[in-house]
Nucleic acid binder design. Sequence first.
DNA 1: GGCCCTCGAGTTCA
DNA 2: CTCGAGGGCC
Length: 783
Amino acid sequence: MPKTTHIATRIAELRAQLDDANYRYHVLDDPAIPDADYDRMLRELDELEAAHPELITADSPTQRVGAVPTGSFAQVRHAIPMLSLGNAFSDEEVAVFVRKIEERLGRDALAFSVEPKLDGLAISLRYEDGRFVQGATRGDGATGEDVTANLRTIKAIPLQLRGKDWPRVLEVRGEVYMPLAAFKAYNERALVEGGKVLANPRNGAAGSLRQLDPRMTAQRPLAFYAYGIGLVEGVELPETHSQTLGRLRQWGFPVSGESDVVEGLQGLLDYYRAIGDKRDRLPFDIDGVVYKLDDYEGQAEMGFVSRAPRWAIAHKFPAQEQMTVVESIEVNVGRTGAVTPWVLMQPVQVGGVTVTRATLHNADQVARLDVRNGDTVIIRRAGDVIPEVVRVVVEKRPAGTRPWSMPSHCPVCGSELVREEGEAVWRCSGELTCAAQRKEAIGHFASRRAMDIEGLGERFIESLSDLGYVQSVADLYKLTLDDLLEMKRRADERDDTTPETVKSGKVATRWAENLLEAIDHSRNTTLERFLYALGIQHVGESTAKALATWFGDLELIRHLPWPLFKRVPDVGGEVARSIGHFLDQAGNQQVIDDLLARGVTITDTHPPTPKLRDGLNLATLLVDLEIPKVTRVRAEQLASAFPSVQALLDAPKHNFVSAGLPADTAQALADWLEDETQAGQLVAGGDALARLDAITPAAAEVAQGPLDGQTAVLTGTLSALSRDEAKAKLEALGAKVSGSVSKKTSFVVAGEAAGSKLDKAQELGVEIWDEEKLLSFLAGHEP
DNA sequence: GGCCCTCGAGTTCA
DNA sequence: CTCGAGGGCC
């Protein structure tokens, strides 16, 4: 056998194996050989072809790496025009589409071939005798650009048809797109290597195909789905579109796995919803779904209106990503003084709603995105709801912009903005002298989960605060009807958008009476709500509840030395200090006094939990005070040597040594006691111990509930009861209701439209209850 | 010291 | 809902 024949055989063999591997990887999504083997074979083929250039053919897998640039794209006239599709944005428009077909054909229960509409670039591929010869963009539908060399680099496009019964000429229509994962990976690498970052997968695909240098295209992670046929010669096509898709699969083209055949309007709409629900989880961007009348005979009968077929339509999703322009970058001051930058943008429709503002979270985020005034930005509704800025379209940036920077002072009160070491947020140092923080504090105080003052919304708080009627939350409880009417009148003068009718006496009076009634109603409250309402940093609902159950009494809490808060589970140094800091401020204590004096009553005062007294003694007190060098062991030595706090305070330093402490520890303790505030804490701690002895009951039987020790998580929407009701009922049975799923979760109650928490529960194998199960469980354990 | 679990805080629109 | 960070446990 002559040597070249032998080599030609080997080359053919390698090509066949590589083609097969490609097909399994890119079309069947079922890789058959490891990447390393693929690379090895490709290298071998490359070497053989380099040595024997006369054996290179255009359909060799080596040619996918990209040919030499040509300079420009030739025009290609499509044998059969590439159609555009009519669009439907609502169910009604789809209904009209279906009805017209039914009327014209005189049939109903029609079968439609349906598939997701990829957000990519439509192309046409021409095969002659089974070999890929030319590919073109859609262009204006009649004439496109010849991008054959670029298309060759896309591995999902067969260079040679598979199977046997090929048509002599075949034109395949489909979409070139960039898979999301590949898009992300490409951009991450581009960022590191300083390459060009792609704006989005669609632009990435379009730009890549129009690269003049195919070697560049070869670097881009493009993929392809076939969705139809243009010209075909030499083979009889099946009778329906769905069968044609099957034929395309056999010839080696990737066809969307989501494609299906459904019946009638309801079938179409169900499919639309199903794909819509899946949209976020699909590995590529789609902008809708396409419906095509399945049988070709019907298609022929329907015909075309101008360039669009009457037998097909694209049902579009509301866009999830949009471009808009930043009008300004503002900052907001929150309840805790946290300063958060946000952008005001030209209004734009995203995911079906009009968006004008989006948060930028913090200064780091602004720096990361480098958002500037006047920038064109791409925004997205994350997690289906909250708009976020995805990135800036730098090419569209106007000249002369400068990076945004955090102001040095609070825009509301002028206090300096400060940032804690290692923290991301800047805070206004003005505390309650800052009007913004005061308003937020009042809003928090009045909110549903706190004091629940109905009708006290943002606007009224704004007026009450700006016009000086309410400085602190306690002022709410001294408002009179006259105050409110006067305030309303003055507020309406400032803002003349209020309709005259609302300004009129009667309406205003009723509003004021209702608000006073709501304020009065809030006077009776629970310790838990009250503590939460104060708005202490790090004390949210759950910590407030824990404090309330452990201490039971506001007066006890108000005068407790802060280290004792660490007795409560889940309260550590940071949170305890924060509570202490709040209570140390005379202004805050004054507000509490005022609230109580103006009739706020805590209705559920009770003795501290016995568990509190159990774990508390002089030794634990000393440990909690965090005295340098005083460890648990040392604290216990001290506690056994001194009968009381007073004895410890009175003792000279050398007595610490005789109590068994090493000299340096004794010195550290003595030094610590030198500080009056610290010594005062010890005294207060001693007093608290004494008080607790007087009021703490003996350990009582804790009521047993059927769900004691279990952790439940609620997700989705329940129909028979609200989430809060469900939470309260589960807690009444002893369960702890938490907000996030982990492997410690006992069960998850999943209502309608449950989201990521349900997924996570399934992933972790956590028990899942539906609403029915919850209701029957609750019914079976009615007290 | 490093994980994993929670909690707190901030957020948008109709 | 998501992010960041506190708290507890190994």
